[in-house]
């Protein structure tokens, strides 16, 4: 993979990924917009700086594993993967359509480079713990990144997995919580309060890093630090704005599970194109 260190270049990548998500969700006519858009910076940093992998050899055994636990934001992963060379950009248009490799929720057997099947919430983190434990057993030094939604941890299974990860000192496991404060029925703190989330993870024997999940520099630094921490699994609480950089989507729970129509698509692309010019001028 190409490792990009230039901040401006990474910001432009994230902007392109956002545009691709808008295009593919509009074409698909359904899907999860806000969470996918909000995580564009996280996926940019993972695929273009932090993770080691080979998009031409997705099964390469020394690769870092990226386990997506809240499968519904998979459009952002598909967009990042296509940019990283796993498959042609054209294929993004097939999202959610009959016969596609880009299933509405990711399927491990459908597309090379997808590590795990996800959809029902809470399973991916246990899967990731199983991968991390096996890596320890096999004395492999790759890292296991597990991305989760904040609403997802309403489920009980993740807490079972967190206990298991801490018990087994899985310091090769880096969990990232997309802390965007929205879920389908509204604000996370009204639906089922999670705060103080950092204290919860500390008491579950995790290293905890809090950062702005829409700030590329903070993400670069956060992941690098997470890789060095020992003896306990790491939790990165990444505060993100759902629908980031698209004014009418930002922070709106109603955009959790909805796709843009043609008019909204044009509006969003105009905003993202303007932002692109701004980043280039920085």
């Amino acid at each position: 993979m190409e490792k990009i260190t230039d901040l401006k270049e990474l910001k432009l990548k994230a902007n392109e990924i956002r545009k691709d998500i808008i295009e593919m969700l509009t074409e698909a006519k359904s899907g999860h917009s806000a969470g996918s858009i909000g995580m564009a910076d996280i996926f940019t940093v993972l695929y273009f700086n932090t993770m080691k992998y080979n998009s031409k050899k997705p099964e390469w055994n020394e690769r870092d594993r990226l386990i997506l636990s809240h499968g519904h934001v998979v459009p952002v992963r598909y967009a990042a993967m296509s940019k990283a060379g796993f498959f042609p950009k054209e294929e993004l248009k097939t999202l959610r359509k009959l016969g596609t490799r880009l299933q509405g929720h990711p399927h491990n057997l459908a597309l090379p480079g997808i590590e795990n099947t996800a959809g029902p919430l809470g399973q991916g983190i246990s899967f990731a713990a199983g991968v991390a434990l096996t890596a320890k057993m096999n004395k492999k030094d790759f890292k296991v990144f597990c991305l989760m939604g904040d609403g997802e941890i309403n489920e009980g299974q993740p807490w079972e997995a967190f206990m298991f990860a801490a018990k087994n000192k899985l310091d090769n496991l880096i969990v990232l919580i997309d802390r965007n404060f929205i879920q389908i029925d509204g604000n996370t703190e009204q639906v089922m309060p999670l705060d103080p989330l950092n204290k919860k993870f500390e008491s579950f024997n995790f290293h905890v890093i809090e950062l702005n999940g829409n700030n590329i520099q903070e993400l670069l630094d956060g992941f690098e630090k997470a890789k060095t921490l020992k003896d306990k699994p790491v939790c990165i609480i990444a505060n993100t704005v759902p629908g980031k950089d698209i004014s009418f989507m930002e922070g709106k729970a109603e955009w959790h599970g909805k796709a843009p129509n043609l008019e909204e698509k044009e509006k969003a692309l105009i905003e993202l194109n303007k932002l692109e010019e701004k980043i280039k001028g920085e």
Partner: peptide
């Protein structure tokens, strides 16, 4: 003993952990 994994009273966790281990060849 090195190939035995105690998961505690957590059957959902056990299944998905096993799936992850299987994906790595166990």
């Amino acid at each position: 003993p090195e190939r035995f994994i105690e998961v505690g009273v957590a059957e959902q966790n056990m299944i998905s952990i096993a799936a992850g281990m299987s994906s790595e060849g166990k």
